[in-house]
């Protein structure tokens, strides 16, 4: 395992220190926690928007803390949901009296831990609502399972819910807008190289030089299928087809697109992917209002990418374009 790190056990703490040291005007840590909040938190009278999850997804989630996006982010151990007490600390730190929305990615651990935190906060008289993001179409959507994972599409939820909160919407309204994003965003990922959880010390799986995984999540896990390495065109088509099958996009619709790198993918490759994706979208007569290309929801040093498509309406379009001033996402 080759990483720029010191002590495995301190990696999350040192990362958070390094983040706050780099952006002292924008961010602060809540003492004794793994919570990062806006420097001006809590913002009086504004709905607080909080997200988080295991570490290893940087810039998610601390990178999206700032005006117009998240008020606070909780970092768990690498790929491990943060505990309820930490989430509770974040809720308390950002509550400006208008309640707090929790944006949870749909993993059993995250859902349970955030829910328990919400219960703690409600017990102290803070209004808390939650939304659970489940954009990953690689996973079967079934009422018999815990359902689909939350992956890169979550960034759209942060952006749009955050802008709605900044715009003075009420907790119920922000929740409803966030739900609207969740219903209309789908993603799918693939990987070329696995990653190594620092404390585990070895990669989560092995791939041959001519293999790739399709339907990969963001926790270094294998995908839903292993196939031969294919050109970007074919990969983009596989990802798009699966998303399209679910969303049934229609010619003339307005969408936003994200090509997200998983942590070790050069921007050159992400732009090549976008070139290919843009072609496919054009063929389908889709109007792309906004394209986001970069590493936003990563999986340590995994190589690969995900495609996310968000169907727009006036509200989502407006809040997606609204100002955001965070360290990893600026509009």
């Amino acid at each position: 395992m080759k990483k720029l790190m010191n002590d495995v056990d301190q990696i999350v703490d040192e990362m958070l220190n390094g983040m706050v040291a780099a952006h002292p005007q924008a961010l602060k840590r809540v003492d004794g926690t793994t919570v990062v909040v806006r420097k001006d938190a809590p913002v009086n009278g504004k709905v607080g928007v909080v997200s988080g999850g295991g570490s290893g997804h940087e810039p998610a989630h601390g990178g999206f803390v700032g005006k117009g996006m998240l008020d606070g982010a909780i970092a768990g151990e690498v790929f491990t949901s943060p505990t309820p007490d930490q989430v509770f600390e974040a809720i308390k730190a950002v509550d400006g009296g208008a309640g707090v929305l929790l944006v949870i990615k749909n993993y059993t651990g995250d859902v349970m831990n955030f829910e328990m935190a919400g219960e703690m906060a409600e017990a102290e008289g803070i209004s808390v609502k939650q939304v659970v993001v489940n954009d990953d179409v690689a996973v079967e959507d079934s009422s018999f399972t815990s359902g689909r994972r939350g992956i890169a599409g979550t960034i759209f939820v942060h952006k749009i819910a955050g802008a709605a909160a900044e715009d003075g919407k009420s907790l119920d309204e922000v929740q409803q807008i966030a739900e609207g994003v969740i219903k209309n965003v789908k993603s799918m990922g693939m990987s070329l190289h696995p990653c190594t959880v620092p404390a585990a010390g070895k990669p989560g799986f092995e791939l041959d030089d001519n293999e790739m995984e399709i339907g990969t999540g963001i926790h270094g896990e294998p995908g839903t299928e292993r196939t031969a390495l294919k050109p970007a065109k074919e990969i983009a088509q596989i990802l798009f087809d699966k998303i399209h099958e679910d969303m049934k996009l229609e010619s003339g619709e307005e969408i936003a697109v994200m090509i997200n790198g998983l942590g070790a993918t050069p921007l050159m490759e992400l732009y090549v992917m976008n070139h290919t994706v843009a072609d496919i979208l054009k063929q389908h007569g889709l109007h792309v209002t906004e394209t986001i290309v970069g590493e936003y929801m990563t999986s340590l040093e995994m190589a690969g990418a995900s495609l996310s498509i968000l169907r727009l309406d006036e509200t989502r379009k407006k809040y997606l374009a609204a100002e955001a001033d965070t360290t990893a996402f600026k509009r």
Partner: peptide, 12 residues
Amino acid sequence: YIGKIGGASGPL
């Protein structure tokens, strides 16, 4: 356990 394990197994 709730405060230290995290993930799914912590709350469980």
